[in-house]
Nucleic acid binder design. Sequence first.
DNA 1: CATGCCGGGGG
DNA 2: CCCCCGGCATG
Length: 511
Amino acid sequence: MTSKRLLDKTLAGVRGTGAGNIVYGGNYCTKTNEHISAKAGGVLTRKKAPATVNGFDTQIVDTCPLQELSKETCPNGNHREKHNTKKKAIYASEEEEREVGPGEVLKCNNCTHRLSLTGQRQEDHMQVDSLNSLRSMLPLHVTDVLAEEIYASSHIPVPRNRKPSGHADKEVMAATVLTTLSTSPLVLNPSPGASALWALLAGGVSETSCRGWKESLSASYSSSTSGNWSWDASDQSVPSTPSPPLSTDVSKSFLIYSQGEDNIEEAESTHFLFEDPIPRKRKNSMKVMFKCLWKNCEKVLSTSSGIQRHIRTIHLGRNGDSENSDGEEDFYYSEIEVNMDTLTEGLSNLTPTSPTTICPPPVFPLGSDMAQSKSATVINSPLSQSAPSTLCHIRTDHAYQATAPVSIPTVSSEPLNSHSAISVSWQSPSIIFKSQPGAHVGILSSGEKRQPVTHTISKTHTTTISTPKPSTGTRKPRGEAKKCRKVYGMEKKDLWCTACRWKKACQRFTD
DNA sequence: CATGCCGGGGG
DNA sequence: CCCCCGGCATG
């Protein structure tokens, strides 16, 4: 390849990376998502993408801050899935995309955000200025892209009123952005390149030269990051195949983590997933990050200064530039070692607790609630988040993962439908997994019974999870509804439903 | 104790 | 299957 070409590629890669983050999150959500992300990514080119799709993406991007974004990703993915066909087609015409070329549109597998270098997205107006400032700090093109992407994708919440004043501020912003970014995309690939990136970030963005970036990026992408898979410009095949990494072995590890629930299935068959993955993933995935401990703030930055700034400006309401801090910020953040994988997961939910944090899931009883966690856990153990109103302590230990397998079986009973896996009741906003309620679940609970609790809830859960085997041992608690016997009375026994007559569980008045 | 059901069993 | 019932768990 010509150097030029290379360059382009690299650039593309960069972009892709940016976008990738988010998408990645999506992946985590579910296996399905992986496809989605890939596809979606393909599609996304703003120009070309169908309005619908676009709209969707855009919306998300614009509207949500990083955290939300991550959440949204999943859903997004779903939607996308729906459109997949379309997308596929689009993807198919890679050529088209290609034509666009690096300069013009960012293409990544991921999608979510592709910006034109030239133009900001309409939505971004508000932040344009900040963006610009950011840009100035970064090396040339790449920077540009990066920044934009970052912005676009993560939308770091920056006080709008706060205008970047001076270099310092800019730096801060940049740092913030980058950091944020780190949470997302880069994280995904714990490749050397990534580290380089990190280093860069930490060091001060502006310093690095384009080249350096490129190099590192390219290196990371080409080699270790199988993850980038999708987006590799050269790799055209990817698009068509939704599931990215599968083909490569590297992907293996990726898969495991990335494909959330679905993995379960796989996991089942392949135990190695759980047993083995941990070590593997750890390899290069640990990173030191700084997490904001402020209540409800899950911000995690890669640099201490960044986090300090964040705290200072966002939480303490001090001036961004006041470089001199009394050190108060120190109280509000902590250093954490983040496992990239985990992070990613977190990304997907990015909820309250930072992505980084993961609380080991409680034991899983068979409770339905747990089930959810199970599923999640099984996969990535993202859910842990739910619990953590407080943060559990950071540093992820995947110990619980070990447990995961156990639960799997249960879960597995579920359908392996595509996305199914996680249906998550976690529907809370944060949800990660996409749940498409429809199909997969459901049925399990059928006759089996009534769970004492509220129907709604129980239903959901029940469905989601495989119902703990009711029959054996545990008898279902008596239903509340009046049964035939009570309703009709012994005298009218003939009116009873057969089940009642047989002394079986009433079929007519089910709870 | 009345119910609701499970686990069996006979036809 | 269809019918029944013993018996246990619950409220």
